[in-house]
Nucleic acid binder design. Structure first.
Lengths: 172, 172
DNA sequence: CGTTTTGTTCAGTCAAAACTAAACAAACTT
DNA sequence: AAGTTTGTTTAGTTTTGACTGAACAAAACG
């Protein structure tokens, strides 16, 4: 097929962009590329293939996978008769990401509340600190809404599972 | 007053925590401390005081302020008869922060949509990419909700301005 | 005018983090 | 058993970015 080149370009582009996005979220770029590759390809991907196709060292794959596993975004699986480890997206990675944000937000809110509690009741700063707390509270509420929305459409989560193997050309 | 020491400790603690939080959001730590100091102290603070009280170089204050101004979180003001520049919180910094997130989200969504558009209609990856897009869409919708909530309570935004000491109830 | 104050810019230092190669350990193969 | 394959860990390199001091330009002061 002549448009395989285009297809691969789109794929590589998506993977690179995902790497940049997650980098801005505080993840190493390679971890983001692994995540992007798993989203795009869907299939279960072997450790070796990750290193080869992304053209990075096995050590980088190892640490990236560790981070992604810790965050609950990726699952390690094995295949009978195969010695390598394989990886796929965790069941609902997006909900997991939101949970994480949620948790962090609540931690921040607790810190601010602690600050407020430690101040004298007539402190001039209370108004601004309450506004500050309110910001994180409403942000948190919004995340909770998004989370419930994601759960609602979880029937759609079947989309996330790896499906029939298809042969993409030999990446870029 | 004997509890002045405690008050300063609470203040310093809040400022440092704010520095750490904003650092995780991709801002330099000092910028976060400046932001935290303006929240806590509320008053208009001079350039020199920022450097002195935060114990950092004037160069750092300069770049931090530049970043905070670019993001619309801080406003530079002058005082008649005073040579120094002074700084205070921008009118509604929290809404501005949410706007920024909103903008970024939409940019990401556009990228993903572009990827989807570039793929053949029967591509096996479409399902997962749609789920990916959906994640950012619902996150974005949630942010929009939080934004409108903030706007709703904008009567409260008077709290953000440096005013006469008023005592808001001390909820937590 | 020269001097001082003030904020920005530039060059350089330092620290943190990403990434790699190499050493390693564990499991499999023969 | 010896030798492979596979993933992790460690040591080292490189890059990135925060921060500082010094040079600088502009304005105010004397």
């Amino acid at each position: 097929m002549s448009n395989d080149i285009t297809y691969d370009a789109v794929r590589t582009d998506f993977i690179e962009k995902t790497g940049l996005i997650t980098q801005a979220e505080g993840l190493p770029r390679i971890a983001g590329r692994v995540f992007g590759m798993l989203i795009f390809d869907g299939e279960v991907v072997s450790f070796g293939d990750l290193a080869t196709k992304l053209q990075v060292s096995r050590a980088s794959i190892s640490t990236s996978i560790r981070i992604l596993e810790e965050r609950g975004l990726v699952k390690r699986v094995t295949k009978p008769g195969e010695r390598q480890d394989f990886f796929q997206l965790a069941p609902n990675p997006y909900a997991t990401m939101l949970e994480r944000i949620h948790k962090r937000n609540r931690s921040i809110q607790a810190d601010i509340a602690e600050t407020i509690r430690s101040l004298p009741a007539n402190s001039e700063a209370l108004g601004r600190l309450n506004a500050h707390a309110n910001f994180y509270a409403s942000l948190d509420a919004a995340v909770a809404v998004a989370l419930s929305e994601l759960d609602t459409s979880r029937n759609t989560s079947a989309m996330l599972q790896p499906t029939a193997p298809k042969d993409y050309a030999d990446d870029a």
